[in-house]
Design a protein around this nucleic acid. Structure first.
Lengths: 221, 221
DNA sequence: TTTCATCGGGTAACAGTGTTACCATATAAA
DNA sequence: TTTATATGGTAACACTGTTACCCGATGAAA
């Protein structure tokens, strides 16, 4: 059925199929699978990521995938981690500012951009696109790592006495993340209309967050 | 195969199956289908709502369902509307308060309770549980109707000059809803840990929202 | 009453999905 | 060279949404 016997005319570029990897004894088959899944995810959305389709793209049977991952959810967990890495990188490369409030605004905008440019990842990670998917322990760690910059801003602001109240920085980050996520997710779900309309809501939310957190403590200004 | 010929020993209670409805010429077959789907939704979650299972519970073939709804999404749209009605009722029966800020807190708590007690509905409506599900025009109207109380609070507060700035009430409601939704949805997705932990985030979020909205305009107190 | 036509509805199929049992084959060990 | 093992592909199972087909009941016409 499959005419893969003659791999002479096969892709002369990079090792992306299982057949090529087997010939070269490539060890990181696992990464190859994740890469294939990631391409499908980004090109066709979370629902299109099926075990059979990944196998087809790798030019192998589904057995390979099930020998590398316990099941489809295991593959999703890895994609979740990869998504955390992407988000983390975007956060890390966000222009810092002496003004911590401004830095927070920058990070918030980067998070919005992540949701827009990597919508499929966003749906997979935080959107509930996979039925009953919840990040495992490793995934939770990845999330915390990704949110590191957000946490450090709050910690710094607290140290400088810019934030009133005595909430833990983790709790504050939780509220920030939740509020930002809420807008993005409602928009993705079609509840907020156009992108423009959604972004207005996002800006307003960010403004309210900042003004609430960085409120002058009891009657300055 | 199906021994439904002898409907003598069939359910002596209420008309819930197609067979009984046909005998009595019951007109609202559509409602019967939605009811069956709603039971499955609440008992087994959104993923368990399949056309076959609904048909089985109605004791009829899937053909009936497809003659009443264009497809499964059509059924989901109706469930969305029903969910809006439930939420709307909960909002309507929320104890009002002269203190508009307190009233807002009450509504926020009711929204949290809706997410907890009707989690399956919440997942279906706002959780992205159905792949690519977006509410249609009628659904959007249902959403607006459900959020009516939230809107009226903001309008009243603006009329009384309790809210600074010149945002539209719709925009403000958007930010409130988004923030509340963000916490509930992240919790449902397993990102916020225990219910208790999530509710702390929720309370903090509500507090920040209220303190930001009802902030004293430029140096009172 | 008998014939015909229409239409409602059940069965079974199609094309998918995740997952796994089975089996052949290729490789490693003896 | 023969045996043992592990590797991996095929095909199946139990599902899913959706629809083509066909049968039987019910209405109208003769």
């Amino acid at each position: 059925m499959n005419e893969q016997g003659n791999h002479a005319e096969a892709a002369p570029k990079k090792v992306t199929t299982y057949q090529e990897a087997r010939l070269q004894n490539t060890a990181n088959l696992r990464q190859l699978v994740v890469d294939a899944a990631a391409i499908i995810l980004q090109e066709e959305g979370p629902e299109a990521v099926t075990v059979r389709k990944v196998a087809q793209r790798m030019d192998c049977s589904t057995k390979i995938i099930y020998s590398l991952f316990t099941n489809k959810e295991g593959l999703a967990q890895q994609l979740y981690l990869d998504g955390c890495k992407i988000l983390s990188n975007e956060f890390e490369s966000t222009s810092q500012s002496e003004d911590l409030q401004q830095y927070l605004l920058n990070l918030a905008e980067v998070y919005w951009e992540f949701g827009q440019r990597h919508t499929s990842y966003y749906k997979l990670m935080f959107g509930g696109a996979f039925a009953d998917f919840k990040p495992d322990e490793q995934g939770m760690k990845g999330t915390v790592t990704a949110m590191r910059r957000l946490l450090s801003v709050i910690v710094s602001a607290q140290e400088k006495g810019l934030i009133a109240g005595n909430s833990t920085p983790e709790l504050i980050v939780g509220t920030i993340w939740s509020s930002l996520h809420g807008v993005i997710h409602l928009y993705i779900g079609g509840h907020l209309g156009s992108v423009a309309a959604a972004h207005v809501v996002y800006e307003q939310t960010v403004f309210q967050l900042a003004s609430s957190l960085f409120a002058p403590a009891a009657g300055s200004v």
